[in-house]
Design a protein around this nucleic acid. Sequence first.
DNA 1: ATGGTACGTCTACGCCGTAGACTACTGTGG
DNA 2: CCACAGTAGTCTACGGCGTAGACGTACCAT
Lengths: 219, 219
Amino acid sequence: MVAKGLTRATLTEAALRIVDGDGLDALSMRRLGSELRVDPMAAYRHIPNKEALLDEVVEAVMSEIDPDAVDASRPWQDQLRSLARSYLATLRAHPNAAPLIAQRSLRTAGSLRVVEEALRIMTEAGAQLADAVATIDAIGLLSSGIAQAAGASSEPQGGASADRFAGLPPHEFPLLGQAAHAGALSDGLADVLDFAVDGMIAALEAKGAAANERLTGAR
Amino acid sequence: MVAKGLTRATLTEAALRIVDGDGLDALSMRRLGSELRVDPMAAYRHIPNKEALLDEVVEAVMSEIDPDAVDASRPWQDQLRSLARSYLATLRAHPNAAPLIAQRSLRTAGSLRVVEEALRIMTEAGAQLADAVATIDAIGLLSSGIAQAAGASSEPQGGASADRFAGLPPHEFPLLGQAAHAGALSDGLADVLDFAVDGMIAALEAKGAAANERLTGAR
DNA sequence: ATGGTACGTCTACGCCGTAGACTACTGTGG
DNA sequence: CCACAGTAGTCTACGGCGTAGACGTACCAT
């Protein structure tokens, strides 16, 4: 009586379930085994070590992103914004896995489709490849950072992190205190990505416009 | 013969030395003890648990940033750029500690001075507080992400990460392959921050200009 | 039927964070 | 001057971790 039919996919699925439900620290090989009603060491028939399992988890999350969801008929700016939003939304669906993704994001194969798609959108709009890479890097880094921060702040207590800033000595930190009272520090995290993306779009537009003027001999 | 004169500061210093030298995983209470030629449990006379020690390490790194290094006579855009650069430079000096900072950055007191300073620069230039917060958040998140990625990529092997992308099937990922060959993926990480900051500056300028026009009734 | 192979199990090793009892020293009030 | 309380470092031990290596057991092709 062996044949529990364990596979890499089953393991990954269970691992992600544990991480989502009980946090990254809760994911141990022993816990994984008990989740699947199997000896902890059984996993090692399918993965070389825990690192590989974590890679698989990252891969699983990243493959939830659907790069084809963007409407190709919209202007490239909208496409880029939409891509960034779905990237962030996916990460926010797995806040506990965000630290993993922050460390491995660009190195995992699952995100390559999204990256390629974003590069296509921007270069077809006339952007330099290096600028496009910078933009998509920034989007990836920001998204994982935001998802991570959002996950971390909600776990310890409720939303008391804003209160800590609100209690700062107002003479030393007037603006921070003000921002805390306005809720800008805690609520606005998701807006950070939009703001940054808009900013980078503006920069790309400016560069593109300058290049066009140079080409057409205008100005 | 007891009196080794252990203090919180000594512990923090040794901890950071271990992290910088041998990586985050190398920092264990036992290792910390042996580094200071002291029983591992001795640390617990000065800190409640390892979490607190990690907080101290983050604090130590953050306090290396000197927010007064920016030249107040320069335009606010340059001040912001300079602040962002010194933030990133500090984090890059401790790449192994970057994951810690990514998780705790805004929650630690040491970074508050920098944040306050950045908010002051931007709001004095006419930016909305919420936009200023978004900008500084993005700078913090990007910097820690960049420092972390830079540290992670150099540790496993040399710089072979670019080669992995270079070996991708060119039909599926033409732009990624191109970017890899151009070195844009690995070398350009530091430029990402500059690019994003420039973009956000552009956005702030645009918003400011629009607000000014509205105020003066121009256009 | 038999031998090989894939998969799950078991035991054990050396790490980890840290609780709790113990010891040696220091500075203070009688 | 001394007892005594408090402080700082030590020791032992517990439960948990990742995983190496030996061991069974069920299947499949010969």
